[in-house]
């Protein structure tokens, strides 16, 4: 029995990675859920919006690096983030102007808009690969670790080490700041309240003098911002590959649905539920268990419920369970 070492192993392999991944999923789900709440369709292009935003961030980062500008111990990409957000927002607003606005004017059904977003997704996906290619790009610079496993061991004298990557810490801190700002915006500012009003009852919002075009624009800008931030954080933490973002669509929508589509608080809770489920189901518990049970009972196998290859199956399973038993999600969203 060695509870301390078990806890550290758990923190190192499950809690910290789950927290960072959860924050990334939550930010992605927030954008998707806002679009669902206000524009009333599931935006399948959200994953590729994240990818495109990250591409912009990488390009600006390279530009800064070429000019010799860095951000000290923080990744240069954080410095590039505001520029990337502006570029992504401009692109997304352009898409809305050229594509979605047409269907909005036709009062197209949500199903049609979903398929439209699928088309936009393929175009963005292709464009993105055209710009930056399909290879793996590592653009994280600055400090690598807040604390390394070796330092932790030396500090505590435990056998297990706890490593916290700089990108993980940055992810969580950034996510907290962004979510705080977003909720302040939605609760306190007039524009934020207009967005909530529009999400509650579009007809009434129009009759209360709320300009729908403005609400739609602000929604796209915020969604683009959230997507870019989520994408860059994910890219810093893992690495950037155009295809992985397309696959992120699944956990993102699973998170949004679990929390209740259209509900921002639900998206955050859903993000962490999905991330922790994924990490915990695919983690080999052998190490943690070995510390917890008497030596004679130590497991021989890996005690891994599922291979990491199946991690997306976890999102699918959560999605199905939630839709079967709690169709409107934990926080009672709009989907039924």
């Amino acid at each position: 029995m060695d509870i301390l070492n078990a806890l550290v192993a758990f923190a190192n392999f499950v809690f910290v990675p789950g927290l960072a991944y959860g924050a990334q999923i939550a930010l992605g789900a927030l954008g998707a859920t806002l679009i669902y709440g206000i524009l009333r369709f599931s935006n399948f292009a959200h994953g590729d919006t994240m990818a495109l935003g990250t591409t912009f961030a990488i390009l600006v980062t390279w530009g800064f690096q070429a000019l010799g500008i860095t951000f000290g111990f923080l990744p240069t990409a954080l410095l590039a983030l505001p520029f990337a957000i502006i570029m992504t927002a401009a692109f997304v607003l352009g898409t809305d102007r050229v594509v979605y606005r047409f269907y909005r004017r036709q009062k197209a059904a949500p199903t049609i808009l979903v398929i439209v977003s699928l088309g936009v997704m393929f175009i963005m996906n292709g464009l993105n690969r055209f710009i930056i290619g399909v290879g793996e790009i590592n653009f994280a610079d600055g400090a690598r670790f807040v604390i390394t496993a070796g330092d932790f061991r030396a500090m505590t004298g435990l056998t297990e080490g706890l490593a916290i990557k700089a990108t993980q810490a940055i992810t969580v801190v950034t996510a907290v700041i962004v979510v705080g700002l977003l909720f302040w915006f939605l609760q306190k500012t007039r524009t934020g309240k207009s967005m909530r009003a529009f999400s509650d009852n579009e007809d009434l919002a129009l009759l209360s003098g709320i300009n729908p075009d403005r609400v739609v624009q602000v929604t796209w800008i915020i969604a683009a911002g959230l997507a870019t931030i989520a994408g860059v954080l994910y890219g810093l933490d893992k690495s950037f590959k155009a295809f992985t973002y397309f696959q992120l669509l699944l956990p993102i929508f699973a998170a949004a649905v679990v929390g209740g589509l259209g509900n921002p608080l639900g998206a955050i809770a859903g993000g962490f539920i999905v991330a922790f489920s994924e990490v915990m189901v695919t983690y080999a518990w052998k190490k943690v268990l070995t510390y917890l049970v008497p030596e004679s009972m130590a497991p021989d196998g890996l005690v891994q419920l599922m291979s990491t290859d199946y991690k997306f199956a976890v999102s699918f399973t959560i999605l199905i369970i939630v839709l079967l038993f709690l169709p409107t999600g934990i926080f009672k969203g709009k989907s039924a």
Binding site: K188, T189, K193, R196, A197, L204, S208, I210
Partner: peptide, 28 residues
């Protein structure tokens, strides 16, 4: 009757007057 269901009755009324200065982020 239509209402903004997730807001309080008072907030529903407070939504109406438009062109307040809280409208711009700068002012907020």
């Amino acid at each position: 009757a239509h209402e903004f269901g997730s807001m309080t009755v008072r907030e529903n009324l407070m939504m109406v007057p438009s062109a307040q200065s809280g409208e711009t982020l700068w002012n907020a």
